[in-house]
């Protein structure tokens, strides 16, 4: 019954049974670990608020036989990132960060750079850095740390490093394609100006907090955002919740969840309710 004590960031927390929680942690020593916290939802739980998503904690857990889920026995909060919960934009960006780490990291494969990048990203968001920009930078770094670095140094298909003027970004190929290869590929590609290429390269190399001083506006911001979104979708094979989907509009457009996947059946009155604006 090995006992572990390590720093961790809570990626996800789900209700389980009567009063338990199943949490996904990114631990410093073991990488991604899933565990059960018994009684975590009770008013007098010893875990308190320690297992809320985004929290940086010191956690103690033990393994039980062949069970994939560890048993969490103690949690001490180092930084709750409570201020992240005050804005939908910061919260949605932080959600993207934990989702991307959860999706790209393998179970029980420790990555200290993944851990520190995520922690730095959450700190920057709490310090009110531009949420979309910060999450783009963190995602570019996490892609690098998990072996999915987008190729921007040479053509992702023919490796030619000198033919990247007016190149385009191809998510399926995993990076820039030279004119020649782009013409021959059947995949969709996105425009990418030299400024956008430079942004991606700098975002990858600059350590925090220097990385948060990177700026991207207008065309560069749009190009990098579109490329990173398309590439992440390609790498993990599904769409993550958009970073601005909870933006404070009173009637946001629907964002691609099919009706039959809704957690609750539609109300019989639903069709009679008028939605203006």
């Amino acid at each position: 019954m090995p006992l572990w004590k390590t720093e961790a960031i809570t990626l996800h927390s789900r209700r389980w049974g009567e009063a338990d929680r199943i949490v996904t942690l990114y631990t410093l020593k073991l990488g991604k670990v899933r565990g059960v916290a018994r009684g975590a939802r009770r008013m007098n739980s010893q875990f308190g608020a320690g297992l809320e998503p985004f929290g940086h904690v010191e956690v103690t857990f033990f393994e039980k036989g062949q069970d994939a889920l560890v048993r969490i026995s103690q949690v001490d909060v180092r930084e709750s990132f409570l201020r992240l919960r005050e804005s939908l934009a910061q919260m949605s960006a932080a959600a993207r960060l934990v989702n991307i780490v959860s999706a790209l990291s393998a179970d029980r494969d420790a990555g200290t750079r993944i851990f520190s990048t995520l922690l730095n990203g959450l700190q920057s968001l709490q310090d009110k850095c531009d949420p979309v920009l910060t999450s783009m930078i963190v995602q570019i770094q996490i892609l690098g740390h998990t072996g999915f670095r987008p190729q921007t140094d040479h053509c992702a298909s023919c490796n030619n490093p000198y033919a990247l003027q007016a190149a385009r970004f191809c998510a399926v190929s995993g990076g820039l394609l030279c004119r020649h290869c782009e013409g021959q590929s059947h995949g969709q590609s996105l425009p990418m100006s030299p400024g956008s290429v430079a942004f991606i390269q700098q975002a990858r190399r600059l350590p925090f907090p220097a990385a948060t001083r990177l700026k991207a506006v207008g065309q560069i911001r749009r190009e990098v955002e579109a490329a990173i979104e398309a590439y992440i979708m390609e790498v993990i094979g599904r769409q993550l919740p958009a970073m601005d989907f909870l933006a404070a509009e009173s009637h946001p457009p629907s964002y691609g969840v099919a009706n039959d996947q809704r957690p609750f059946p539609p109300h019989p009155m639903e069709n009679n309710i008028e939605v203006s604006g």
């Binding site: 998503p53 949605s92 919740p241 958009a242 909870l246 957690p263 109300h267 009155m269």
Partner: peptide
């Protein structure tokens, strides 16, 4: 009948928020 979730992508159209506004 639910809550918004930035982590799981549950948005306002999936809970009865518009009905409350109404």
């Amino acid at each position: 009948s639910g809550a918004l979730s930035p982590l799981d992508g549950v948005g306002p159209t999936e809970i009865r928020a518009h009905e409350l506004e109404q």
